[in-house]
């Protein structure tokens, strides 16, 4: 663009005088921004006219200034918007970046938390079932122990009780390992059995206790099949019993003992 021709067109003068159209005004403002020579020329013209105007002053009345200034207040103005804008935009630029960092962190943490929670739950459920199982087992063990304790306690009480006569029946030739204790109450003649070791009775057969009174075997009743770890209550014996013996008989017992089927025997 020919700057000199533009200057000589007189449009700058018209601009300064304020007689240009809005389109021309825009054009001048745009071009003076682009071409420093134009801006220079414009400012020179403006300065010249300004000085010309200063040569034509009409001083306003002296009191006018006070009237005008009484209507003005000079509180410090807010920071101009264009000075605030950069900080805001800086904040505006930063926050998405921060978010970009924060979001995955949060999601990662959330995922991690979920995984941990899932693992925790699984572990808890596993532990629970395991504990339940252990609980059951312990309960069984405890009830077993309680039975054992009750059995042992009863045994201990019976053995210690002086009214009970302890009669040890040892294994004979047929079963030397066997051992059964008869606890004979001297006051009531009640007889209890504590089977310590005795082979399991074959099917169709049952052990039977005998009391020897005056050289004659007296039936004291049959042992129930599940005799292990139990105190068995037998029939009441006669006062003059000299010995006790157990033979293997047919189920339900026999009227007389089969002596060749004797397992244990003990004298009072």
């Amino acid at each position: 663009m020919n700057i000199q021709a533009y200057i000589e067109s007189g449009i700058l003068e018209e601009y300064v005088l304020g007689t240009v159209s809005p389109q021309e005004k825009q054009e001048v403002e745009c071009l003076t921004k682009i071409y420093p020579e134009l801006k220079e020329e414009l400012l020179t013209l403006e300065a010249a006219l300004e000085k010309y105007a200063q040569e034509h002053q009409t001083p306003p009345p002296a009191d006018l200034k006070d009237k005008i200034f009484a209507q003005m207040n000079f509180e410090p103005v807010e920071e101009p918007a264009d000075e605030v804008a950069p900080t805001e935009s800086r904040v505006g630029v930063l926050s998405p970046e921060q978010k970009a960092i924060v979001r995955p962190l949060w999601s990662m943490m959330a995922v991690a938390a979920s995984v941990l929670l899932a693992i925790g739950l699984a572990w808890a459920i596993y532990e629970m079932s395991d504990l339940k199982f252990q609980n059951k087992r312990l309960a069984t063990q405890i009830s077993n122990l309680e039975e054992t304790v009750a059995y042992s306690g009863t045994l201990a009480r019976l053995y210690r009780d002086p009214t009970y006569k302890v009669v040890r029946m040892a294994g004979v030739a047929k079963s030397p390992e066997s051992s059964v204790v008869a606890l004979w109450n001297q006051q009531t003649n009640e007889v209890l059995l504590d089977v310590q070791k005795l082979p399991v009775a074959p099917s169709g057969r049952q052990y039977q206790l005998w009391s020897i009174v005056n050289g004659q075997p007296v039936d004291m009743g049959v042992l129930e099949p599940a005799f292990d770890g139990k105190i068995l209550r037998m029939k009441t014996t006669q006062p003059g019993s000299a010995a006790f013996a157990i033979t293997l008989e047919k189920t339900g017992g026999s009227p007389t003992p089969s002596l060749d089927e004797m397992y244990v025997m003990g004298s009072v």
């Binding site: 034509h56 002053q57 001083p59 000079f74």
Partner: peptide, 25 residues
């Protein structure tokens, strides 16, 4: 002036009111 300083408006008035008033008149 943009900072709303009184001294600047004083200067502005003292310096330019005559020329501006001339135009108004």
């Amino acid at each position: 002036l943009k900072r709303n300083e009184r001294a600047a408006f004083d200067y502005l008035y003292d310096h330019y009111s005559g020329a501006l008033f001339n135009v108004v008149c």
